[in-house]
Design a protein around this nucleic acid. Structure first.
Lengths: 136, 136
DNA sequence: TTTCCAATTAAGAATGATTACGATTTACAT
DNA sequence: ATGTAAATCGTAATCATTCTTAATTGGAAA
């Protein structure tokens, strides 16, 4: 996911182009890792001192609902990052130090296809946590 | 995990037997599913109107640290349930309606053993969400 | 039983993340 | 350039969770 693709999606869905929205997206493009709402606000307020949490959270919710960002819960806080380019379903190793991820191309659900008859499966989560080679 | 086993562990670690502690544990034994701190407090306050959140959270933390309870994050809230009897590593299907779980005997990490060289793996999460046969 | 101390709890304030809301500003189609 | 709906600001509210301090309690020892 890059800036242009993100704006294509936003425009298609009738969202307006604002400088704040753009800067939030730029931050995610530049900093390819999981960020919290606070992380974003801290950086944004250097350029827009009056920026409010409402704006951050509202835009994050928009981006997630449009598939531009993906979200996870890390140590009790919501974290967000650019949605991966790869169109095939996959999972992530997440570095607990720097927040960077590594794609894991396999999905455990493949092997559980018929293991849960009578159960209605809505979704699943598979994440691996630890330290990446750089942080180790 | 049953009441006696839980108290064995608590006593071994020097924790005192209190009626509140016991009732919290009884609730988890009786109601074999994921519960929130609020769920517990609501029930407990029928018998102990002055019971405080602090007591609930402190005891939950104790139980988790001793391996009596297990914990997960569901829709932004911490949920707790009795730790499974099975001593072999496994994962869970979680019903989003009633909170009951079904054990999944396989672990995706088995197949990823050497797939992440140079990465230091600390832990992982694999959970399946949906509706159980009763709630469907 | 009574005493005593450390563990436990109550009460409510503090914190930190997130959401809500009325007022104001901005993007952009016309 | 203007009108209008969308976006944002500023701030307050909410919700889960933790902290603080004082009071209470379990249970070992006297």
């Amino acid at each position: 996911m890059n800036l242009d693709k993100a704006w294509d999606i936003l425009k298609e869905n009738g969202f307006k182009e604002t400088s704040k929205r753009n800067q939030i997206l730029e931050l995610f493009v530049k900093d390819d890792r999981y960020l919290t709402a606070r992380d974003l606000l801290d950086v944004m307020q250097k350029d827009y001192p009056s920026m409010s949490y409402d704006t951050v959270y509202r835009n994050l919710a928009t981006f997630v609902s449009l598939g531009i960002l993906e979200e996870t819960e890390l140590s009790g806080e919501r974290h967000f990052r650019m949605h991966c380019e790869s169109d095939s379903h996959h999972h992530h190793f997440i570095c607990m130090d720097c927040g960077k991820i590594k794609e894991i191309p396999v999905c455990p659900m493949d092997m559980l296809g018929a293991a849960l008859p009578a159960y209605e499966i809505a979704n699943h989560k598979f994440e691996i946590y630890g330290k990446c080679p750089e942080c180790k």
